[in-house]
């Protein structure tokens, strides 16, 4: 039984989430309210989108730590531009603009990684500071409280609101957006040639090329999509907070990394799933949102993320050892 659970990363994560939820629920009864649940969903949107982007890059064997900088830069540039233009149109167009800007940032990463053949960790560490620094230096460093009206209104765009026990529990549109994107990506990764090629490139780039995969376009697609998703995450963050703050979304790339690795992706590439990543996001967001509820200082949240990260890296290592032992194949030098 335990072996089976260890076998499936997603099941293991789901079990951990369930156990933690029960513990939280016993310590703080309001944990199991729809209001708190939907609240967790809303707080998961930004991390969720960033993690999905990072997942794509990690499947191809790279890493992108610049997603948070891309998010904040796309959001801030979009806000500044729309304010300049005195834009009053729908939020959708603002979102599209942010996504395009994010994709361009992604393309910068992709170009450096594929053409200069630099390691993606080095490239994105560089662009992480470059995007943030460039933003503050050339675009501005003021926190903008007055966003275009439609953008601010988005923060209260609820898909529906449940009334339970007299307390309203709103379900925000952005949660639905995250779910739709996750489902689409899960399908594309599992069931299209593009998806299989992503895994192939991450697993063994040389072999992938020999089997006819256009390796460079596949890698570019991963970075560009990661940028686009980060752009979307940024604009969502701005809208949900009703402010464009160039100093937000700092360090979220580490939470995203934790979520993706917890979900079964490997730094070496070729592994990871959307379901696992989303469970990782839920775990991290749930813990972050519930610590205060049960009276633990929120500063502890980083310690928890660190523990999760270590677990996410340690469990597969143990599992592999177990398999090799069972097969009598422990060979190393």
């Amino acid at each position: 039984m335990i072996k089976r659970l260890l076998g499936s990363r997603e099941l293991l994560l789901a079990a951990v989430i369930l156990v933690l939820a029960i513990v939280f629920g016993m310590l703080a009864p309001q944990f199991f309210s729809f209001a708190h649940m939907f609240g967790i969903g809303r707080s998961a949107v930004v991390l969720g989108l960033l993690s999905l982007g990072l997942l794509l890059v990690m499947i191809t064997g790279g890493i992108d730590v610049s997603v948070s900088a891309t998010a904040v830069a796309s959001m801030y540039i979009t806000s500044v531009a729309l304010l300049e233009l005195n834009y009053h149109g729908p939020f959708l167009l603002a979102a599209v603009l942010a996504v395009v800007i994010g994709a361009v940032f992604g393309l910068v990463n992709a170009t450096l990684v594929t053409i200069l053949k630099l390691p993606s960790l080095i490239v994105t560490l560089g662009t992480l500071t470059l995007f943030r620094g460039g933003l503050l230096a050339f675009v501005g460093s003021d926190r903008l409280r007055e966003l275009p009206a439609k953008m601010s209104e988005f923060s209260t765009a609820q898909l529906f609101t449940l009334e339970t026990g007299g307390r309203p529990a709103p379900f925000h549109v952005s949660v639905a957006v995250l779910i739709v994107i996750a489902v689409l990506l899960a399908w594309a990764l599992r069931s299209t040639t593009w998806g299989k090629s992503m895994y192939a490139v991450g697993d063994d780039e040389v072999a992938a090329r020999r089997l006819g995969v256009a390796v460079t376009p596949v890698k570019i697609s991963a970075f560009v999509l990661a940028g686009a998703l980060a752009g979307l995450a940024g604009i969502m963050s701005g809208a949900l907070n009703r402010a464009a703050d160039p100093f937000t979304i700092v360090g979220v790339e580490m939470d995203a990394l934790a979520a993706v690795v917890l979900g079964g992706a490997a730094v070496t590439g070729g592994r990871g799933s959307v379901l696992g990543t989303m469970l990782g996001v839920i775990l991290i967001t749930m813990v972050a949102a519930s610590l205060v509820l049960v009276g633990i200082p929120s500063a502890w949240r980083h310690a928890f993320v660190g523990i999760f990260l270590l677990l996410g890296l340690g469990i597969p290592a143990l599992r592999q050892r177990r398999i090799e032992k069972a097969r009598g194949m422990v060979v190393s030098n």
Binding site: S191, T192, T193, W194, L211
Partner: peptide
């Protein structure tokens, strides 16, 4: 696995 197919063809 064949890597030389059109990318969006469902498998």
């Amino acid at each position: 696995f064949q890597g030389n197919r059109s990318v969006l063809i469902p498998v």
